[in-house]
Design a protein around this nucleic acid. Sequence first.
DNA 1: CAAAATTCAATTGCGTGCAAATTAATTTTG
DNA 2: CAAAATTAATTTGCACGCAATTGAATTTTG
Lengths: 158, 158
Amino acid sequence: MANKAAHIDTIPEEALSLGKQLCFAVYSAAHAFNRAYKPLLDRFGLTYPQYLVLLALWQQDEMTVKRIGEEIGLDSGTLSPLLKRLEAAGFVARQRDPGDERQVIVRLTEKGRDLKSEAFGILMDIGKASGCSLEEAGEIRDTLHQLTRQLNSGHGAD
Amino acid sequence: MANKAAHIDTIPEEALSLGKQLCFAVYSAAHAFNRAYKPLLDRFGLTYPQYLVLLALWQQDEMTVKRIGEEIGLDSGTLSPLLKRLEAAGFVARQRDPGDERQVIVRLTEKGRDLKSEAFGILMDIGKASGCSLEEAGEIRDTLHQLTRQLNSGHGAD
DNA sequence: CAAAATTCAATTGCGTGCAAATTAATTTTG
DNA sequence: CAAAATTAATTTGCACGCAATTGAATTTTG
């Protein structure tokens, strides 16, 4: 892992510029995606994190809160109220696991399952709005996954 | 009713997978950066958005709330309380523009200016945590800037 | 010049995100 | 088997982030 940052006297004043910072680029892109999704999701009364939960459930129905949290990277403090809102909106049902009463199993309702077919439309609208090809998107995605893994390794198991 | 989008043979079921979505990769990377910054910024009692405001002010001191918002992409609804907290913490001062009483000018305090030299340390810690070279970071950054611009063009000035 | 429109910041309301504390259920252990 | 430790979800408190509203100041215009 040759780190090019060996002699850092090369990091000038300019490095503090927002435009020069990778983290700000990621931060801005995340907000831009959020804004792009908003009008599409508003039609269904969903927020982006709520949509992420549905995406996860469309792949694998009947997950515990903890499992969902691992899938999308949120803790129960965020998920508990979010899931209650998804339940109130009729997209999912929550039920204590009879086998282990500590756990809550979240499953799609009919309404939640029906939304899946519409999700392809959202996906394509976003794909168009992002203005990049599938290959391009795939490259950026993989690069970011690697970056995320690297960043997360800093406080996991060391 | 077929649960498969009829003529969209290029976008399969798999496209709904979280791991396949560019937006989720961006979303996750943003959170990963946030978590990486947190312990570094906690030392100064700062949040990441607050740090962004200081970065902007280190480049160009004495900006209006609106100008800062344009720099980092936040509106006054977010900035007003944030700037009050930055003021309460002693990093900035806020003052109505005598020439145009609608505007509020934000400027660094001595304490805010002093923090600038420490910021290089934060920058380098993050650079190390991201595990990519300056060139690599630059490429990803430019790609994301382009992506952000493309996404924002969908509802901006046209 | 005065009314209307515009601009800027602050405020309100709602939904994340995360840390820390809480509660209930299960597992470990002494 | 009972006490202690662990686990899962909820709750609480704080800080974004954004839409919509408000209020004050300025500009436009009739």
